[in-house]
Amino acid sequence: EAHAAIDTFTKYLDIDEDFATVLVEEGFSTLEELAYVPMKELLEIEGLDEPTVEALRERAKNALATIAQ
Rank of each mutant, 00 (worst) to 15 (best):
E33F: 06
L23C: 01
E41N: 12
E46A: 13
A68L: 09
E1S: 13
V37H: 10
T52F: 13
Y36G: 08
Y12E: 04
I45E: 01
F9D: 00
A60I: 07
L13I: 03
I67E: 05
P51D: 12
S29Q: 10
F28H: 03
T10M: 15
T21N: 09
T8Q: 07
E25I: 13
I6A: 05
Q69I: 09
D18C: 08
E26S: 15
E44T: 13
T66H: 11
L34V: 09
T10L: 11
Q69N: 11
L48P: 03
E33N: 06
V53A: 15
S29T: 15
L48A: 04
I15L: 06
R57K: 12
T10H: 05
T52L: 10
I15T: 02
E32D: 07
R59Y: 04
R57Q: 15
I6F: 04
I6G: 03
A4V: 12
K61T: 06
L56F: 03
P38M: 07
L31I: 08
D49K: 04
F19M: 12
I45A: 03
P38S: 12
R57P: 03
T10Y: 04
L23F: 03
L42N: 03
E32K: 07
K11Y: 13
V37G: 14
A20H: 01
A65N: 10
T66A: 13
A5L: 10
L48F: 09
P51I: 12
V22L: 15
A65Y: 08
D49L: 05
L34R: 00
R59D: 03
L48K: 02
L31C: 02
A65E: 09
E54D: 07
K11T: 07
E58I: 12
F19A: 05
A63P: 00
L34Y: 01
A35D: 01
T30K: 07
D16V: 04
E54K: 15
T10C: 08
I67D: 05
E46Q: 11
H3A: 13
E26P: 01
F28P: 01
F19V: 10
A2R: 14
T21Q: 11
K61Q: 09
L13P: 00
A68W: 07
L31S: 00
V24I: 11
L64H: 02
D14P: 02
G47A: 06
V24L: 08
L34N: 00
A4Y: 10
E54L: 11
L42M: 08
A55R: 14
V53S: 07
E26L: 15
L23P: 00
H3M: 14
K11A: 06
L43A: 06
Q69H: 09
F19Y: 06
D18V: 13
E17M: 10
E41T: 14
A65F: 08
M39H: 07
E44L: 14
A68T: 09
V22I: 13
I45R: 05
E1R: 06
I6E: 02
K61G: 04
E46M: 12
I6D: 01
